[in-house]
Design a protein around this nucleic acid. Sequence first.
RNA 1: GGGCGAUUAACUCAGUGGUAGAGUGCGUUCUUCACACGGACGAAGUCACAGGUUCAAAUCCUGUAUCGCCCACCA
Length: 1006
Amino acid sequence: MATELPKAYDPKAAQEKWLTFWEQKGYFHSEPDPAKKPYTIVIPPPNVTGALHMGHALNNTLQDVLIRWRRMQGYNALWMPGTDHAGIATQAVVERQLLQQEKKTRHDLGRDELVKRIWQWKDQYEARILGQLREIGASCDWKRTRFTLDPVCARAVRETFFKMFRDGYIYRGKRLVNWDTHLQTSVADDETDTVPTKSGFWTFKYQVLGEPGASATGDPVFISFSTTRPETMLGDTAVCVHPSDERYKALVGKLVLQPHTGRKIPIIADGQLADPELGTGCVKVTPAHDPNDYACWVRHPEIGIINILNPDGTINDAGGEYKGLDRYKAREAVTKKMEELGLYVGKEDREVPLKISDRSKTPIEPYLSDQWFVKMADRTDGKPGLAQMAMDAVTGGRVKFFPERYADGYLAWLGEKRDWCISRQLWWGHRIAVWSRTFADQKTFEDTLALEAGTWASLPHVAWTTQDDTRTVHICLAHDDQDLIAALTADGFAQSDDVLDTWFSSALWPHSTLGWPGPTLPETNPQRKAPDWDALRSYYPTSTLVTSRDIISLWVARMVITGLYNVGNIPFSDVYIHPQMQDAFGNRMSKTTGNGIDPLDIVDRYGADALRYQMVALAGDTQDSRMPVSNVCPHCDTLVPIKQEHLSGRTKKLVCPNCKKPFRPGGPWTSEDPELITAKQASDRFDQGRNFANKMWNATRFMLMNLDGYTPGPVDVATLPTEDRWLLSRLATTTKAVTAALEAYRFSDVARLVYDFVWSEFCDWYIEMSKGRLKAPATRAPAQRVLTGVLDGILRLVQPVMPFVAESLWHALGEVAPERGLPTPAKAEESVAIAKWPTYPDAWIDAPVEARFARMQDLVRSVREVRNRYQVDDKTKLDVTVKCADAVAADFNALAAFIGPLAGIATLTAGPNVAKPKQAGGIVRPEFEAYVSLVGLIDPAAEIKRLEKQMADKRKTLDGTRAKLSNEKFVSAAPPEVVQQQRELVADLEKQLAALEENLKDLQTA
RNA sequence: GGGCGAUUAACUCAGUGGUAGAGUGCGUUCUUCACACGGACGAAGUCACAGGUUCAAAUCCUGUAUCGCCCACCA
């Protein structure tokens, strides 16, 4: 007797066992190998800010499916794992923790100490993230794990920055940034939230100066304007009206008095800034503190630009008597002064959109600051324009998007060719390697340049540029030349405090992790492997990038840019964009709203295979995919679906509808609540995957119980019975379709195809049919060979999606049938993770056999339906007579050995001339003229009603189709095969209706 | 405001011109020797709405509505 498997699949045991096994075998490590074609994926590095969520589970499962599949296909498959330092997000989370736990700011700690703390945080969360990836079965090459601040990456960042600086792509410029006054850093637009906030809408007036400062009546003339931020009046450099606004036409060009500062500022006309319909139609212009005003200043630079804020949000010297006041205090003071001067017109309460920093949760100030930029525009000096270069890669088809439509967004964004601000006022990140000195006077500036420029120009690792308006020299070093740095420092140069935008290092990820700019850098971590030119040559460009659409511009576009710029080649040929997950109500999942699910909750409850199966199943080509979430009652394990009302305002307590006990819903809680147990989260969407794993487990279990005496041997398909040929036809078809779906990134098709084949065709039909054959010695051996051979193929097909259950069953099967396979058996590989991806001969695909089998299935289902409708118990065998063509009868006879047991038929008589039995029960299914002997089991009235309804439906279809066929236009315009098909349909329906009619008569006379 | 996507059974989704599909759930039934995380059978849909193209529309076109995502804007 073969080894017996437990009755149910135990995911936990399997996961632990096979993770260790795979690692020991080293299957996932890849080395450059000229004999094999490479297939490479670099992971979108998760931020080290926290744990992985469901979006990561989706993203990484899909990558793993591709990698495992290509590995089986014989590619040299490399999946490069790693994490991202996520500058602002990580620093903010550590700073927040520092403030909460120690009541300290980063300035209390100092740069070195804070960075040290963040490294500690990083080590902790990196380990956690990599552990989570491992747990869901990600077959990454862990030896190549990278972090965006690794020396390997730092070197690439330094090199890229230097090259871009030298080539004139990087420049110093002013930029109105989102300034976080609390963290004292600029933040990106997407790192802010806009929240409606109660505030005011003030209206003031400025007095118009000029000849002779009066109206016709001699009274002073005023111009009024509205604002939501009165304190910015301190920085006003103009007031602006629409050029076609008749009310103000006469005033354009005159000056007004800014009363707080005493400045005389002009009235200008600008159609883009002022809207005559809004407010007074006149608007004040504060270029340094408002994005629109800034844009106005760019159009009218003569008005000037005045910064009134210090980095901490207090008013600076430009604010005169208001200097040192916090901006909100200044707002009051400035307003009060206007009241005193009689320039205050009014105020209404209004809800205004206020930009809040995601990280510090404090209001953002638009703030003018010096930043480093990468120039994206086309160039006139023959060097390529970066944006255009990346656009050409997509329009030229070298980089392809799946689904294609995402290319449009990519091209539209790049088409704006907006420069990329790459400096961040942070401590956590790649520090910018630029040393700068601002000279106090023009002469020293020029003298120094005259003296030093020649020296700098002669050094290949030095690039320099000047900012003439501020008399500043910027020197960029390709590497830390300590002597030069010492000399520069002695000369008054200081290194920039800024670090680079996180996306700058992420943009290099595909080539920096593969060793660019080579050669080998000494590796400090003994467990990891340093990349070199060889790796870059072998694995670059990578094959597929798998990501979600929200970072197509931030990340994908920039990888294409730097790949082309640094390596001279695209970073990847395919970009697959997967859907985003939403909750049951179409809202995006997030921890803070509590509608997300922790993937490890799912692994724990349903198993990693179930999680992965579901991720694959929902990855269709639409943008979004919904996942209803439930809380698991910690008392009685009931699933309590999350309702819309639970989400608004975060319900803190739920009562289980089943056991009536209270619990705290799962969500963004940072700690346990001793009073109220916190629920884990779940979703019954994962049932399907869990059940599927168990189904395969039990199919294998059945086989192991029936493989006594198994001997391997070749199988000649042509001589096999119909059901075997049907199964092999289905296997070959399915395998081909699965392979095609993977090639086209149609993941949901993969899940569906495999599921249907295994469950419906293999288990429900073939295994059931094999039971009889396995009992008879004469037919046992071929059935065993087909069963093991097909299961072998199934496990291979399933491995990329559900590797744990596949590996478990592979080994279980291997114990009994180590040699197996179709058509010729071979020794099975030691692991399905490295087994060959299956392919079967096209000749196996046999449409006539499938058609015959479908008829048999129809008959079986029909008889079962009758049994069920008339409540005939299973022990009662039925006699069935089928009137049909000879060919069909032959099929039935060929399959009679199975039809009987499957449908509980005692005698089956089939042929064109069979006589209807004297006491027929009813028509089994109108597709056949089939009669079942059912004595005394029919309720004629109910049956007549049912038949009439059925006949009415058929007649409707028949009439419609007949009308269609009698239409000359249809017959002439439609393709001949369609016309033929419709004719057959009519004939079929007529036959069915006639049979139903006859049956109805029988019933009426009974 | 612009772009993209969605709207098909109670739920989650397939279905791109020719008789409406699956899984879950639901109902009936079966705990007989792979699996109750199971087997068998069944009920359930004006394919969001309105026009148009076509012999023929869930499918193609136009518009409307609702929902979602991205981008821009909001003195």
